[in-house]
Write a protein that binds this DNA or RNA. Structure first.
Length: 144
DNA sequence: GCCAACGTTGGC
DNA sequence: GCCAACGTTGGC
């Protein structure tokens, strides 16, 4: 099983929004990603993989865990390219559980073991990889 | 509001 | 295929 981190601006779509959807038995299509590196990461995702939910701009903290319920499929919101192909893809997600204590970007940056985490190293990438060691440490910092 | 980092575009 | 110009993301 692989681990990931996905960003969203909470005033657009927050972790609470995802929790509400999941409670109703619905899934969320992680659409709108228009970056090849992020798309390639989504293509690598498998059903059952878990991902941190990060609030960018507002909060700047990891607030919970979600899971991949459907692997990458064409993004219904994406326009076709000149050849009529779908370039952009997305995965479907549901919430798993919130962090009892959100883990801020400042905290992550202040933790030497997390210096290489892609959230910090590739700050503009909206879908990034998290190693198992990083996953465990951040979960612990979040109170899980 | 500014700026660094990075991706994309387009001229050559 | 290179590179300058420009646009976007996201932290500060």
């Amino acid at each position: 099983m692989a681990y990931w981190l996905m960003k969203s601006e909470p005033d657009v779509f927050s972790f609470d929004d995802l929790v509400a959807k999941t409670a109703k038995g619905e899934t969320e299509e992680w659409s709108g990603v228009r970056n090849y590196a992020a798309r390639n990461n989504m293509r690598e995702m498998k059903k059952g993989d878990e991902a941190f939910f990060y609030h960018s701009n507002i909060g700047k903290e990891i607030v919970g865990i979600m899971k991949i319920v459907e692997p990458a499929h064409p993004d219904s919101t994406a326009e076709l390219n000149a050849k009529g192909e779908v370039v952009w893809e997305c995965v479907d997600v549901q919430s798993v559980k919130p962090f009892p204590r959100p883990v801020s970007l400042a905290e992550i940056k202040a933790t030497p073991e997390l210096a290489e985490v892609e959230l910090v190293r590739l700050s503009r990438l909206s879908v990034s990889k998290v190693s198992e060691a990083e996953w465990k440490l951040i979960s612990k910092m979040g109170g899980l």
